[in-house]
Amino acid sequence: MNLNWQFIIDSLPLYREAAWTTLKLGFWGILFSLMIGFICSIVLYFKVKVLKTIVHIYIELSRNTPLLIQLFFLYFGLTKVGIALTETACAIIGLSFLGGSYMAEAFRSGFEAVSKTQIESGLSIGLSKTQLVRYVVLPQAFSVSIPSIGANCIFLLKETSIVGAIAVVDLMNVTKDLIGMYYQTLEALLMLVVIYLVMILPLSLILTWLERKVRYAEFGN
């Protein structure tokens, strides 16, 4: 099993470009997921009428369908009914649609972890509803949600591997092309694995460390 190192060096720029695309998509996907998730969890927390039902439907739809189908539908399906989106836009929308519900779940579990006595104490010292959320609920909820938010970030970054299927030139696409064009299968796969390890392993280690830290911050421990 001899690896063609020259080939690896030559294809480095391609992989660098693709890794950059993956990170960019991951960044926007995570950012929008956080926003969607936060809004959804607020809606659920305050039990806003009508909106609550919409959020529930959204969460179920997003959690119970594969990203690949969501992407195909956005990219190939919607163009046929007049909504043409670029592949990058589709990828970001797809990732946000998927990630939003996971983030909503993470925030929700945080909100639920804030004990009733905290809210009652807040009310008894005369905080308004917004103040209560801003100063009592959010800081505590956030610290509880951090591990699952982190896990979701890793999950989304991994899910970006699928966007290659709709012609985004990401890591998977580059790898597939190199295998198809040059038959340098092992070299291409090695690069692919190494890059994913380099991107995700540090995140995973930070997350483990963060989880341990946050556990000390929990109320009542």
């Binding site: 369908t65 969501q70 539908f73 399906g77």
Partner: peptide
């Protein structure tokens, strides 16, 4: 011409019906 809209829509619902 609109087949991809309907087929992918169908697959979307199909996976949902199985996973939900």
């Amino acid at each position: 011409p609109t087949a991809s809209f309907w087929v992918y829509g169908f697959l979307f619902i199909l996976y949902f019906v199985i996973c939900y």
